[in-house]
């Protein structure tokens, strides 16, 4: 079994989602190699090697979207290198890459994977449907390489199989007209505190917070006091109260913190699929029948505009 990972990076190191897939691939056995599009392949390769990657194909993006260049590069390599399975993170660039490569190689894709198993030549990907109520296993049929996209937080990243990976520089790739899609500017929004997907505590607000102006004093403040990150339901993202990057759920992020606090969130299946893997869940909702209570370890039936300020004061008073 030879597994390839479409690696992504942040600040010169592999993203957690990348390392989660590397760890899983290592556990499945066989060889784990990576394809990385970026100008800092040497530093990214170090992190990949610490998790068991033995070879990294480095591709120069030349200003083009990473997924577009990555797909073209992989398409050029698979003939000679013959990977059995190629994994992508369910991210913006990962989705561009798997989509384009699928069409290039004429292979099906399985996306939103949350589990992965290998039995001889058979590769099965597990996904959740109907907001996580049901789990579906799907087997690849037909020719290799198989292409799968995995939702971040599906596996746990752990160092191991330490290697100093061989770095292979892939020459210029021709992405055809697709290569016209150039990144002209990058805008980075300021973020305080830990990343949503990596925070130990996540405090999320839903429509029940009442208005946009309540998000900062209630949700963000509580998150800050607990050294956590603030999240949101789609209802308040769609309403424009908070940016999309805060959305938890089926079409947002999956989080698995030690503690998830849901404030004024009803608990639609599409929200719960993104947070019910949390170790502990506290919910505050004035509707005692709200579905969120079915997953809450501690459910407070009450008005959050009263409970949360009192809670914040009590935590502050502890010093």
């Amino acid at each position: 079994m030879k597994t390839w990972i479409f690696a992504e990076s942040e600040n010169g190191a592999p993203t957690t989602a990348t390392l989660e897939m590397v760890t899983k691939a290592r556990e499945l056995g066989g060889t784990v190699e990576a394809v990385y599009v970026g100008t800092d392949v040497a530093s990214v390769a170090t992190g990949l090697g610490e998790h068991g990657v033995t070879k990294v194909f480095g591709v120069d993006p030349d200003g083009v979207l990473a997924g577009v260049v990555g797909a073209a590069a992989i398409a050029g390599l698979v003939g000679a290198e013959a990977p059995d399975l190629i994994l992508f993170a369910q991210t913006y660039d990962g989705r561009d890459a798997i989509g384009r490569l699928s069409a290039r190689l004429d292979r099906t894709v399985l996306t939103n994977g949350m589990s992965l198993s290998v039995d001889g030549d058979a590769v099965t990907v597990g996904t959740a449907v109907f907001g996580g109520a049901q789990l579906v296993d799907t087997l690849f049929e037909g020719e290799k390489p198989y292409l799968a996209a995995i939702r971040p937080k599906s596996f746990v990243a752990e160092p191991g199989g330490a290697a100093t990976p061989e770095i292979v520089a892939v020459g210029a790739v021709d992405s055809g007209r697709a290569g016209e899609a150039k990144v002209l500017e990058r805008h980075v929004e300021e973020r305080e505190g830990p990343k949503l997907e990596e925070a130990v505590v996540v405090v999320s607000g839903g429509r029940g917070i009442g208005e946009a102006a309540n998000y900062e004093p209630l949700v963000e403040q509580l998150a800050n006091l607990l050294s956590g990150a603030s999240g949101a339901s789609r209802a308040i993202v769609d309403a424009g109260w908070v940016p999309y990057s805060k959305q938890v759920g089926q079409t947002g992020k999956t989080v698995k913190p030690k503690l998830y606090i849901a404030l004024g969130i009803s608990g639609a299946t599409q929200h719960m699929v993104g947070m019910k893997g949390s170790d502990n869940i506290i919910a505050v909702n004035k509707d005692g029948e709200a579905p969120i209570f079915s997953v809450a370890d501690l459910g407070i039936v009450g008005d959050l505009t009263k409970v949360v300020p009192a809670l914040i004061e009590a935590i502050k008073a502890r010093g």
């Binding site: 996580g132 789990l135 087997l139 009450g302």
Partner: peptide, 22 residues
Amino acid sequence: AGQRITSVAAAPARQAGEKVED
């Protein structure tokens, strides 16, 4: 299609815990 569903199962349910009326 190049893919075949092999099993469908209900996801393990999470137990509700303590519920407190404020």
